[in-house]
Amino acid sequence: MERISLAEVRHVAQLARLQLSDEELAVLQGELSSLLDHVEAIVALPTEGVAPTAHPLPLSNVLRPDVPGPCLEQRDALAAAPEAAEGRFLVPRILGEAP
């Protein structure tokens, strides 16, 4: 019995925006399950009252002075885009209806 079902793997691939073949989903089911087995070693550790560490430095709200400075030109920002038009990134339609 795998720790994670094929349906769950398919759902996670959707969340991750990854198009994967059925064959690869099945392989990932096994690999994710064995990795979760490995991680089980820490899932069971007692950590009640332990604060989580998200980051090694005690930082909060690092701000710079609100002074205008040079930044990337629009044409440079668009130069690597797969498609661009009229100063914007061009994408396929986003909503369901036909154009």
Partner: peptide, 16 residues
Amino acid sequence: GVRYGLRVGGPDVAAM
């Protein structure tokens, strides 16, 4: 596939 790098086209943004 929007701002830089590879794009493989699709019928809508999610598929792309």
